[in-house]
Computed example of a mutant assay.
Amino acid sequence: MMTRTRPFLLAAALLASTALSALAGEADDQIKAPVLRASVNVSGDIVRVGDLIENAGVAASVAVYRAPDLGTTGVLPAAQVIATLRSHQVIGVDVRDIKEVAVTRLARAIDAKEVGTAVAQALEHRNGLGDAANLSVSFDQPVQDLKFDASTSGTLAPTSVRLDPRSGRFDVTFELGHANGASPTKLRYTGTAIEMVEALVLTRNIDRNEMIRAADLQIERRARAELGGAEPASREFAVGMQMRRPIRAGQALKATDLAKPDLVQRDQTVTLIYQTAGIYLTTRGKALEAGTDGDVVSVLNLQSKRTITGRVTGRGQVSVDITVAKPQQSSEAEIAAPVAVASRLPASATTKAE
């Protein structure tokens, strides 16, 4: 149902004395009868006879009304329209049971959303910013919906773009072209642009070395600046990892905040594994520091009471490669001697009793 707006003004003085009456003077078999239109669209500020009726003939260009405001619709009773046409010598109009005539003035509308999108596209990839779709734009002043003449069919074209990369402050000027050759309309906007990313946010406080569960995480859009230039952690990567440092609830997680879970804990009793080609020996040790898979940690050999270093290779396991062991870490009596004895015995030899 069409909304009624204020009645548009009758242009009583427009060409009243010069209207033509050609329709009344021509033969019925040579011209079609004029027919009233129930709905009219105009692009200018004047409503003419040819807009209101079909088959207007030479009277089509006669101006009879001022058009409504841009983008609005005015409604008049059909009887009033017919009376106006008669005053301009346009007669014999077929009303076709039309009770009222709605006249809409077409317009090029630009709303706040379109302006925000245009600003984001103008700032895209400028001074380190990312894609336009990830930019959150706020304006210094509320952006009003704009309406222009229907001949304004162009897009918002940026002619001047300034951006402060530290504060995100922008100053962008656009031009809006007109198909009728009129000078472009200039529009200027200032405000702040912030690049947003999808980030994992903790739902509770988590201490250092504490394991992360799926329930500890939720996804929110956050300013990239919160991550300090680091990549945001993904849910697939984060679940099952542990924290490198304590982080409070509500903070966004960076990939660098996470580490593989420790397989060896400080002061934990671990299995020390000495191995080289053809030799595999194990003994007990006490971890002097925590470590995850692949970390090099210090371990106290509980049998020799010597501190050695090895690489974490499993939960509660530290491996020492005899071929690369340093003398100050592993003595010959502890490692080399048993290996040498074992290597001198052929596979088929048997040991004789003394």
Rank of each mutant, 00 (worst) to 15 (best):
Leu146Val: 01
Lys147Arg: 15
Phe148Ala: 02
Phe148Tyr: 04
Ala150Val: 02
Ala150Gln: 07
Ala150Thr: 04
Ser151Met: 15
Thr152Gln: 07
Ser153His: 15
Ser153Met: 14
Gly154Thr: 08
Gly154Ser: 14
Gly154His: 07
Gly154Pro: 15
Leu156Trp: 00
Leu156Phe: 09
Ala157Asp: 15
Ala157Trp: 06
Ala157Val: 13
Ala157Gln: 00
Ala157Phe: 09
Ala157Met: 12
Pro158Ser: 08
Thr159Gln: 04
Thr159Arg: 00
Ser160Cys: 11
Ser160Phe: 10
Val161Lys: 03
Arg162His: 11
Leu163Glu: 10
Asp164Lys: 01
Asp164Ser: 13
Pro165Cys: 04
Pro165Asn: 05
Pro165Trp: 02
Arg166Trp: 00
Ser167Gln: 02
Gly168Ile: 08
Arg169Phe: 04
Arg169Glu: 05
Phe170His: 00
Asp171Gln: 04
Val172Pro: 14
Val172Ile: 03
Thr173Asn: 14
Phe174Ser: 09
Glu175Val: 01
Leu176Gly: 06
Leu176His: 01
Leu176Gln: 06
Gly177Ile: 02
His178Asn: 13
His178Leu: 10
Ala179Val: 05
Ala179His: 02
Gly181Thr: 03
Gly181Leu: 05
Ala182Ser: 13
Ala182His: 10
Ala182Asn: 12
Ser183Glu: 10
Pro184Met: 12
Pro184Arg: 02
Pro184Ile: 05
Pro184His: 01
Pro184Ala: 09
Lys186Ser: 13
Lys186Val: 11
Leu187Gln: 00
Leu187Trp: 00
Leu187Phe: 00
Leu187Asn: 02
Arg188Lys: 03
Arg188Glu: 02
Arg188Gln: 06
Arg188Trp: 07
Tyr189Val: 00
Thr190Gly: 04
Gly191Met: 09
Gly191Phe: 03
Thr192Val: 11
Thr192Arg: 06
Ile194Asp: 14
Ile194Met: 05
Glu195Arg: 05
Glu195Gln: 15
Val197Thr: 10
Ala199Gly: 11
Ala199Asn: 10
Ala199Trp: 05
Leu200Asn: 02
Leu200Ile: 07
Leu200Met: 01
Leu200Val: 09
Leu200Ala: 04
Leu200Lys: 06
Val201His: 05
Val201Gln: 11
Val201Ser: 05
Leu202Asn: 15
Leu202Thr: 07
Leu202Lys: 05
Thr203Ala: 12
Thr203Ile: 01
Thr203Trp: 09
Thr203Gln: 15
Thr203Val: 13
Arg204Cys: 06
Asn205Thr: 09
Asn205Lys: 01
Ile206Ala: 15
Asp207Glu: 12
Asp207Cys: 12
Arg208Ser: 15
Arg208Trp: 12
Asn209Glu: 15
Asn209Met: 09
Asn209Trp: 07
Asn209Cys: 15
Asn209Val: 08
Glu210Gln: 15
Glu210Trp: 13
Met211Ile: 07
Met211Leu: 06
Met211Glu: 12
Met211Gly: 09
Ile212Pro: 09
Arg213Phe: 07
Arg213Met: 14
Ala214Ile: 01
Ala214Pro: 14
Ala214Phe: 09
Ala215Asn: 12
Ala215Met: 06
Ala215Leu: 14
Asp216Val: 04
Asp216His: 03
Asp216Tyr: 01
Leu217Trp: 13
Leu217Arg: 08
Leu217His: 03
Ile219Cys: 15
Glu220Asp: 03
Arg221Glu: 14
Arg222Leu: 07
Arg222Glu: 14
Ala223Cys: 08
Ala223Arg: 06
Arg224Gly: 05
Arg224Glu: 14
Ala225Asn: 09
Ala225Thr: 02
Ala225Lys: 08
Glu226Ala: 08
Glu226Tyr: 04
Glu226Gln: 06
Leu227Gln: 10
Gly228Val: 00
Gly228Ile: 02
